[in-house]
Design a protein around this nucleic acid. Sequence first.
DNA 1: TTGTACGCGTTATCAC
DNA 2: GTGATAACGCGTACAA
Lengths: 340, 340
Amino acid sequence: MEEKNLTIGDIAQALHVSKTTVSRAMSGKGRIGEETRRRVLDYVEAHHYSPNVVAQGLAQNKTFNIGVVMPGDSNISELPFFQSCMLGICRTASSAGYDVLISMVTGEDISQLRRAVTNRKVDGVILTRTLTEDASVRYLMETEVPFVAVGSTDDGEVMQVDSDHRGACRELTDRLLAQGLRKIALIGGDERFVVTGSRLRGFQEAVAARGGADAGIRADVTLNVRDMETAERAVERLVRRETECIVCMDDFLCGCVLNALQARRIAVPGQIRVASFYDSTVLENRLPPVTSIRFDMEELGGKACEQLLHVLNGEPAKRRILLGYEVHMRESAGGCLDKV
Amino acid sequence: MEEKNLTIGDIAQALHVSKTTVSRAMSGKGRIGEETRRRVLDYVEAHHYSPNVVAQGLAQNKTFNIGVVMPGDSNISELPFFQSCMLGICRTASSAGYDVLISMVTGEDISQLRRAVTNRKVDGVILTRTLTEDASVRYLMETEVPFVAVGSTDDGEVMQVDSDHRGACRELTDRLLAQGLRKIALIGGDERFVVTGSRLRGFQEAVAARGGADAGIRADVTLNVRDMETAERAVERLVRRETECIVCMDDFLCGCVLNALQARRIAVPGQIRVASFYDSTVLENRLPPVTSIRFDMEELGGKACEQLLHVLNGEPAKRRILLGYEVHMRESAGGCLDKV
DNA sequence: TTGTACGCGTTATCAC
DNA sequence: GTGATAACGCGTACAA
């Protein structure tokens, strides 16, 4: 089927032209006669020739690979995120002639990323999660490798593509408050994740905009919740305080919260309302249907990759891109008020 | 920090030796004086030199990349699987000096895989899921690229590393039957997945071993269940038939089943027992705790990578490797009988 | 033990 | 418009 190891030289020889000509015909760069161009292209087509990208890379000091850093220790809740994000990245990378090299980073151990970079295996890097004190970010900055982060960073220097978590959380919270709820709570995960901070701010902004404590609003925030046990404790406390609504920062936490409520025989949304983020399949099959915010993670990955490619091509790229969201009001938070 | 673009030639020049010597010192191949060897290595160390793997590859016709094919359209249930599997693959690949290039394959569209292969970007490939009629497998076989599949294939020719799904399902089923249960059911996903067939066989073997219909055992099998709706229908039917125990082929399905039961106010394990596969975090936070089978997916990925590396190095490799499992009996299926 | 010369497959720089 | 020729960074017969 595939002609084995056909090289540009073989073609040149067969067609009685020089390698240069063949190269030009393929790349489209440099002047070349229309007729010879056709001849070469036809031959290439007929013999299923495809250039050796490694050799191309060596000549141009490129790899046509982009590195993607994935956390090796993430919660299940975020997995659909990484999966979809990856899909978006691979799609746009692939259609631009690039491949995706992945490096798993667990905790502070960035050895895989370091390997990929020092071995010159990648032209640029995409980070799929950012911490407030990120070893990967630090490393990439000091090695001056082009990179873009999915998810925001405090460092204004790094290129970033993110969903508007702050705006999303603000709007969700606002809608809940608009229903007349006054005792509202926010439950979130690891506070070292930048995204946790963004959502927290959105939450606080919404509360403040509605008058805050002066307007009789009681806003409860619990962070660093990460498993059934901590969720249990948080829920117990919130129930005791007669909280009317719990906003969960992600679907995994929300699952824990729902369990905790179920175990205490507290009806949702009857006795307490619940809303969440991501709207992933983790909750898709939960009862009752959970009010949630949906992000297009594939688009997120795609845009990030797009930005990186711009940088690699020396084209201008925006330093920060904020993508939209959709609020899906469902039964868990008192039903279908709206659907943006 | 990193010396920019230091080449083997630069080192040779600085040390007044030939490039060959430097090359030998680094690779360890060929004879070389212990003293010069040290000198070179010291210099390399001091200047943070690391060889250009792309150039190495071009010279040796290798890439030091292994391709990993991931499904772009998988159920959430399988995600922890891919994540962990990936981790195992990356770990062992990395420690062998290889990097991981990923190709997303959605449905019949194997264009990304095809690209990686025709562009000679990978030395071998790992498949993280196999279908009964697998486009990737077919392609890889006809292009004669070394590859190993995680998960079994009917084709005896392909190298495969898999968990013992059949044995696991047999043992789980047997243990349930040992409790005296007689009306037992199996719910599974897409029957085109080879793994679905393996588990089905294990289930049937266990039933047969206990005497089957002759011994008054009624075994119900429902495949191609993939969402809340189909699960709902299956559960309704099983409940009507007074099924005593439902074995779910994966945790996602199990989640659906639990929901369906919850919606009908059927107590678990009081009125019906439930068991599942994978034991992922998808169910970890469910109530009641679900009896489940646990596989070490990271080991699975690691072993697969190991096998592939053997092939790439021309070393002997087993054509089929079967990894173990652990049965965790928990409340959902009547409690702690055993813990293997 | 060490060095020379060439090849890997491609692009870039000049000449023609 | 086309073609030698030299890089790109490294491995490796072969020679010394």
